[in-house]
């Protein structure tokens, strides 16, 4: 209604580094899930992916907190204070513990897997699954509990984060397995059975993920002032290229179609394209969620 004559520009709170942090934890949680499918749940079909999955999970989870430490103003103080001054009502407080315990558990799980101790591998794998869910779910909670922003403050946020984590993790595993089998084995033959069954999982995860995005936006468009504004900003405004085209069309819908059609699913070329597109799309999703959620000033 009015024209603003003077106002103070507010600072960006959580920047791109946080998006990369969310992306890395998501990939890690997803690849850990694939890794536990054979040792934890006895699905032997996925056994060739287990060792690669746990190595990827540990490496990514060692990388992820580095982005977090680059973002905070006082990195060393933050590590100390998070443990000493624990605030039980803050989601971020629990994150510090999860980010320490989950890689430790994954390393122990990986060591037993490489040594061939089936029983302990199963135990630590099963302990790791709720941890992997928590370590990525809590990132969604961090955003959901920032009550000021209508785009973040929804109960769907942790679930959306979990599904996008699993989606990107499965895509990464498909790519890694194809690269390993093609270039780093003696036979140079890709394990087609494994890759295609992972692609089927990817397809159904994408269906759920798209459904969750639809739920989120349909509610936002009917919600109050700020929710409507931010939904319009994402769908038709300056964020629409990243949100509609990169995240949902390139990142989710096209890969879903590729992995749903049997002809393209059985082609390694199309599978590589789908997995790469999906990984780019999920990175865009992290940036859109973190940056777009706070792009509009609140008052």
């Amino acid at each position: 209604m009015g024209k603003v004559v003077f106002d103070v520009h507010y600072q960006t709170t959580l920047a791109f580094l946080i998006s990369y942090y969310f992306y890395c934890t998501g990939l890690s949680a997803g690849s850990f899930m694939i890794s536990t499918m054979s040792y934890g749940f006895g699905m032997t079909k996925y056994k060739p992916a287990s060792k690669m999955g746990v190595v990827a999970a540990v490496l990514l989870l060692l990388l992820a907190p580095q982005f977090l430490l680059m973002q905070v103003g006082w990195p060393i103080k933050s590590v100390w204070n998070h443990f000493v001054y624990f605030n039980p009502v803050s989601a971020m407080s629990y994150g510090a513990f999860l980010l320490m315990l989950y890689p430790l558990n994954s390393i122990i799980y990986g060591i037993f897997m490489f040594k061939g101790n089936m029983k302990l591998t199963k135990i630590f794998g099963l302990i790791g699954i709720p941890m992997a869910l928590a370590v990525h779910g809590y990132t969604g909670w961090i955003l959901a509990l920032a009550v000021a922003r209508d785009y973040w403050n929804t109960g769907l946020m942790p679930i959306v984060f979990l599904f996008s984590a699993m989606v990107s993790g499965v895509s990464m595993m498909i790519l890694l397995i194809m690269i390993r089998d093609r270039f780093f084995t003696k036979e140079k033959v890709i394990n087609k059975d494994l890759v295609v069954s992972l692609a089927k999982i990817l397809g159904w995860l994408l269906v759920v993920d798209l459904f969750l995005v639809f739920c989120d936006y349909s509610v936002l468009l009917y919600s109050k002032l700020e929710g409507k504004e931010v939904a319009h900003f994402m769908l038709f405004g300056k964020m629409s290229f990243f949100f509609v085209v990169v995240e949902n069309l390139i990142g989710k819908i096209i890969p879903m179609i590729i992995v749903m059609i049997p002809r393209t699913r059985n082609s390694y070329f199309w599978l590589t394209v789908a997995a790469l597109m999906n990984m780019v799309g999920i990175l865009a999703m992290r940036i859109v969620t973190v940056y777009g959620g706070q792009a509009l000033p609140l008052m």
Partner: peptide
Amino acid sequence: VGCRYCMS
């Protein structure tokens, strides 16, 4: 520690 969570 400057994590900016309260800001958001």
